[in-house]
Simulated scan of single mutants.
Amino acid sequence: MDRLILADTERREIKALLNVSMDIDLNETKDFELSVHRSAWDDTYQYGGYIFKPGTEIGGRIGRLNTDTALETVKVCGLTWRGMLNRKVIEPPAGQDYRRISGELHEVMKELIEPEFEGLFLVSEADTGVTVKNHKFERYTDLLSGIIKMLKSVKYKLRITYQEESQRAGYVLVEAVPIIDYSSQIELSSDSGLDFQLNDIRNGYNHMIVAGKGELAERNVFHLYAWPDGSIRKTPYYTGIDERVYVYENTSTETEEVEEKAREEFAELMNRQEFTMNTSDLQMEVGIGDILGGRDYLTGVYMAKPVENIIYTTDAYGTMNVEYQLEGED
C-alpha cells in the first residue's frame, strides 16, 4: 500500500502511518478503524484530525478513540468522506415542499457541498457538459444519497479523491464522472476464475395495491403493475394465473410521496435478478457505481449489477485486501 498519512485538525501532514492495520468501509458503514500498537502510540492522533491516502478515496476524519488496557492496540476510528456527506441534509427552502435544482452537474454539486465543509470538500471546476433540470430531492434526504441519486439519473457517479498540496492544506476533490458498464466490455464467468451466484426470480409480485392516507372508502388507493421489461406502469400486463398481488400500506408518508416510496418497495418484490460475486480476486480497478456482469454458461443465465461498496483492509505490514460489494449484497 502507498503512504497512509496522518494529519492534524488543519490537515497539516504529521507523518506516514507505518505498522498500523486498517479497515475502511467506504459506503456501507462509511467509517474506518486503525489499530495502533500501544508501544507506537503518541499524542499526534487527535480528535478532528485526518487520515488519507493521497489520490484515492481512502481517508476520513478522526472522531473516536477506543482503548482497552487488556489489549495491545488502540483503535482510532472515524467517518469516511462519504460518511461525512451522509451526515448532512438537503432541506427544502422555507415555504417550499421540496428542494429543486437545475444546472451543470459540478455547478449544482458545488452549491450543495462546498458551503457545508469550510474548504475541506471542493468540487471540480471542469464542465461535464451534462445538466439536470428542475431535479427534485426527497424531503430531508441526506446529502450523499441525494447527490448519488441525482447523478445516477444521468448515468453519472460520484468520484472522491484526497488531493495533496505543497503550499497549503490538502482537500477532498469531488467529481461527477460517467458510470462505466464493464458488463458490456468484459463478461466475467467461471472461466475467469471468479465464483458468483445468480438468482433469476420469475415468481415475484406483479400487481401492487397502494393504500395511503385516509379511512375506508375515502382512503387514497391506486394500483401499480410490473411489466416484462422491468418497468412499473399504471396499466396491467399480467392477468389470471400469472397475476400475483401485493398490498402496500403507507399512512405515514405525505400523499405526493407515497407513489415514489411504493415504487421503491415494488422493485424489491417483483421479478428480478440477484447477482453476488466473489470479487476479492477481481483483477481490475472499478469504482462505486460501476457495473459488473457475469454469465453461467450451463444455465445461460446472465445478469449485471453496480458496485455498491468497497472495503479496504491492511495488516500491520501494509498488505492490502480489497473487497467489492455489489448492489443488494449483504
Rank of each mutant, 00 (worst) to 15 (best):
D181V: 07
G240P: 00
K261L: 06
I288D: 12
S231T: 10
Q197N: 11
L120S: 09
R64P: 00
G204D: 00
V20A: 05
V307N: 07
T314V: 00
M284F: 05
Y237D: 00
C77D: 09
G59H: 00
V301F: 09
Y171G: 05
G48D: 06
F266R: 06
I180F: 08
I147S: 12
T67M: 05
I113D: 12
L122I: 15
I90N: 07
Y140E: 14
E256M: 13
Y302H: 05
E72S: 15
Y162L: 03
A262W: 08
L18S: 12
R99I: 02
L65Q: 08
Q96T: 09
T69M: 02
T319Y: 09
R87Y: 02
M270R: 11
G289S: 11
G294V: 09
T67N: 13
V76N: 02
R295Q: 10
N66R: 12
E268S: 14
E285Q: 15
Y237H: 13
G170D: 02
E164A: 13
S153W: 09
D200S: 11
V154D: 07
I5S: 03
E165R: 14
V74E: 05
E114L: 11
P93W: 04
D315K: 03
M208K: 03
L216Y: 14
Q185D: 09
M320G: 03
K53W: 03
G204C: 00
P115R: 05
V74Q: 08
T141L: 06
K30N: 08
L269D: 04
L65H: 08
E165H: 12
T239F: 06
Y302Q: 14
S231E: 05
I241H: 13
T29A: 14
E118W: 12
L105G: 10
E243Q: 11
Y312C: 02
A211P: 01
I288E: 04
L105V: 15
I24K: 00
G289L: 12
I186H: 09
K75Q: 13
A304R: 13
P54T: 09
G318A: 07
T141Y: 01
A217F: 11
V89C: 05
F32E: 03
M22T: 08
G289V: 01
E164S: 11
M303P: 01
G49F: 04
D31P: 03
Y297V: 05
V20Q: 01
R139Q: 15
Y50D: 04
A176P: 13
I311M: 07
E91V: 02
L26I: 12
G230N: 04
G83S: 05
R202I: 03
R3T: 08
K149G: 10
S184W: 01
I232C: 04
Y171A: 04
R219T: 10
E259Q: 14
Y297T: 07
Y182R: 09
V210N: 06
R219W: 08
Y297W: 14
E256R: 13
T279F: 01
T319C: 00
V74T: 15
I62E: 04
R263N: 02
G293C: 04
S153P: 06
V174R: 03
L269Y: 11
T313N: 01
L144I: 06
H106V: 08
D68M: 06
M150C: 07
V322C: 09
D191Y: 14
Y302K: 06
Y317G: 10
L158F: 11
E175V: 14
K305I: 02
D127T: 15
L65Y: 10
